[in-house]
Design a binder for these strands. Structure first.
Lengths: 174, 174
DNA sequence: TAGTTCGTTTAGTAATTACTAAACGGACAT
DNA sequence: ATGTCCGTTTAGTAATTACTAAACGAACTA
């Protein structure tokens, strides 16, 4: 039996909310993206609020977060004070901007603290045997983070991480 | 000025807690991993509880989660009823088991719902023009998820995702 | 048998995060 | 200026998540 389009859309949006939550983002964020992604034209704040059931305030803050990540884009119309938002449809582009956004955040600071730990350990003079063990462990972790970081930077630098590149990677990993 | 090893370790563990939180895991989980990672020998539940400041109950549940992800390993000693845990030191191995663990979870279910949405849309007969638009959008998203999924599966299948492979990937992406 | 010593579960609490309602301030129109 | 229409901010609340304390059950011991 064929369902009403509205119902299908609603369930799709629900699905995106779940995915959003899974990745540690507010579920409202997923819903907002979903609404925009299924809209053929840019929507205003109030329209998004209406369709998601969130308040204008919540939509305001979360749609800006989405914009910082490059998942949505703000646009304006002449002689119209409203802002309009539309979803980015190139997801590879989005990944790149999310990675870019995530660099220079708390995460980088935390990773930096590992580096710092290593420096401190190496500056020490006492407890030779325990220090040697700790240095080795922390160094290994730091190398791992560096590898991840290189990967992320490489992806950010690509002008397009398309299906083609993904398939190239897949062929290497075979 | 050289600091006490204990202080340095403490700050390192704090750093791992932050990183853990950043990725959407409980910060206690990061602390537990940190304690184990800096220990040259496996530790018992109570010892982990003591060093992290968490209760035995909390450690029990979170250390099991870590074990499911393959980030720590449980071991036992003859004539000793205690369980002992130690950190996995091969992080690439860990990534693989985390990916493996994440498959077949809520995430997969949510991604599956996108597939389902597509099927429902294609089964419809009314609203030809709007449906065409929605189908196109949802299909694009589904393709994207499939690409991610292939990557994850490829990584899981590798017997070793080492630095070597990472560098190969980097060279492709250049 | 009763008594230890473990890990796990449970029920409740603390802390954090997501959200609402409403005030606010800027930009424009009259 | 005054009022309206926006987006943003703020202060408070709801919902969720992380945790504690304590009871529990299994496995062993005496």
């Amino acid at each position: 039996m064929t369902q009403k389009l509205e119902t299908i859309k609603q369930e799709f949006i629900e699905g995106l909310s779940q995915i959003s939550r899974f990745w540690g983002f507010p579920k409202g964020m997923g819903a907002i993206f979903g609404v925009l992604y299924l809209s053929p034209s840019p929507l205003s704040l109030d329209e998004i609020a209406r369709q998601t059931g969130l308040t204008k305030g919540a939509v305001s803050t979360e749609v800006r977060a989405l914009a910082r990540m490059g998942l949505v884009h703000r646009s304006t119309r002449l002689a119209d004070r409203k802002d309009y938002y539309e979803a980015e449809t190139d997801f590879y582009k989005s990944i790149r901007s999310i990675l870019k956004e995530r660099q220079n955040t708390e995460f980088d600071r935390a990773v930096g603290s590992v580096k710092e730990t290593l420096a401190r350990l190496e500056a020490g003079t006492t407890n030779a045997e325990e220090r040697a063990f700790l240095i080795e462990r922390v160094r290994a972790l730091q190398e791992f983070f560096d590898a991840i970081d290189s990967l992320a930077r490489a992806v950010v630098k690509l002008e397009s991480l398309g299906l083609a590149n993904v398939q190239k990677i897949l062929s290497i990993l075979k």
